[in-house]
Structures are given as structure tokens and as C-alpha cells.
């Protein structure tokens, strides 16, 4: 199976280089754990991987082909979980979940996904009544409800209780066992088997960008 790789990626935000010369390879079944302090570009890197951001230098390749050549195909094979949960307050938990699942061609009745994050009891509850942790679990349930090869998770465990973090780790292990790959930015310890670590701290470029000529 194909590799997902980044080659000498550069990311510039607000006239300032966040990182430069960043490379990674994420093989099937692999887990890439991004570490680094706030502002080191973990979220930016995940957004680059998702295709939400375009790199200012370098390229992202799936199976040797740049993801920019077929953005919709790339979007179709990934799940991105950012800081926002995309939960509609007036839709029930089940309605929220089945919309996103159906849009990605997943199961129409995503009971298994609800079960995986212990949301079955809450299925009929409208989104506005959920706690922050429950909303996060609902967002995570999207990962299960429609299969995708690549999971991009930005601080997925924020607001989760201990049991839910365990469920997340189990879901990731399951995903990887099936050949899926995952990239995670996290501060809390997430129990992942033999992860590839990528520290972004070392990749901050010398801060005299070329704008100063």
C-alpha cells in the first residue's frame, strides 16, 4: 500500500515562517505523533495534511502523487478532527452523526459508532444539551461512522474523561490494525503502540525571513 509523505514542507502564517524543511513518511498502519510547544505549528501541519492549507514550500504526496492534484479524492480518504466539533445544537446526536456519515457514504444507521464512544443512550438528545466532553465524543464517533484511511486528529482528547480516552485509543488501534493511519497532535499521553514521533520544536526556522531583504 501507498505511503503518505511530506517533503520539505514550509508553512508561513502572517508573514512568519511557522516551520520549514519538514518531512515525514506515514506508512499504512502507522501513527504519527506530533509534539512541540504551542505555536510550533502542530495544528498548521494537520491542516496542511488535510488540504485545508496550502504549503508555501514543499509538497504532500499520497502514493507518490501530490494531493493538490485531486483535492476531492484526498478529502474523501481522510477524517479531520480540528478544535471545533461541528455539532448542530438543534439536531439530535443521531441526526448529527448520520448526516456526516451519509455525506461520506457511510452507514445510514451508525449504531456501532455511537456504541464505540458510549453515546447510544444520548442518541435522541439534541446537540445543545451535550457537555463539552460529550460533543467531543460525538465528533470522534464520525471517525467510526464512515471509514477513511487517514485520520488527522488535533488534540482529540481535550475534554474527554479517562474512560473515553481509553475508547479513543482502542478506536485508533482498531483503525491501524485494519491498515489505517493516523496523525495526532496531543499534549496528553495517548496510549499508542510504537508511534513515529515528530517534534516540531526543532523545525522552527531562524527568524529572519526573506521579507527583510
Amino acid at each position: 500500500m501507498a505511503n503518505f509523505e511530506g517533503r520539505s514542507l514550509q508553512c508561513r502564517r502572517g508573514g512568519r515562517d511557522v516551520f520549514a524543511g519538514l518531512s515525514f513518511v506515514l506508512p499504512p498502519g502507522g501513527a504519527l505523533v506530533l509534539t512541540g510547544p504551542n505555536g510550533s505549528g502542530k495544528s498548521s501541519l494537520l491542516r496542511l495534511m488535510a488540504g485545508l492549507l496550502r504549503p508555501t514550500g514543499g509538497d504532500l504526496l499520497w502514493d507518490g502523487r501530490s494531493i493538490a492534484t485531486a483535492p476531492e479524492a484526498h478529502a474523501g480518504r481522510l477524517h479531520y478532527l480540528g478544535h471545533l466539533d461541528a455539532v448542530k445544537p438543534v439536531l439530535s446526536v443521531a441526526e448529527n452523526l448520520s448526516f456526516w456519515a451519509a455525506l461520506r457514504g457511510g452507514a445510514a444507521a451508525p449504531e456501532a459508532a455511537l456504541e464505540a464512544f458510549a453515546l447510544t443512550e444520548l442518541a435522541a438528545l439534541p446537540g445543545r444539551l451535550l457537555s463539552a466532553g460529550q460533543r467531543r465524543r460525538l465528533a470522534l464517533a464520525r471517525l467510526i461512522a464512515a471509514p477513511a484511511e487517514l485520520w488527522l486528529l488535533d488534540e482529540p482528547s481535550v475534554g474527554l474523561d479517562h474512560a473515553s480516552v481509553g475508547r479513543l485509543a482502542a478506536a485508533i488501534a482498531d483503525h491501524r490494525a485494519g491498515g489505517g493511519r493516523v496523525a495526532v497532535a496531543t499534549h496528553t499521553a495517548l496510549d499508542l503502540a510504537d508511534p513515529l514521533r515528530l517534534s516540531l520544536d526543532a523545525l522552527a526556522p531562524p527568524q529572519l525571513p526573506e521579507m527583510v531583504w
Binding site: 527568524q207 525571513p209 521579507m211 527583510v212 531583504w213
Partner: peptide
């Protein structure tokens, strides 16, 4: 350029 210098 001034902004970049400030940042630096």
C-alpha cells in the same frame, strides 16, 4: 519590512 524587523 518594518513589521518583519519588529517581529525579528
Amino acid at each position: 519590512r518594518l513589521r518583519a524587523l519588529d517581529l525579528a
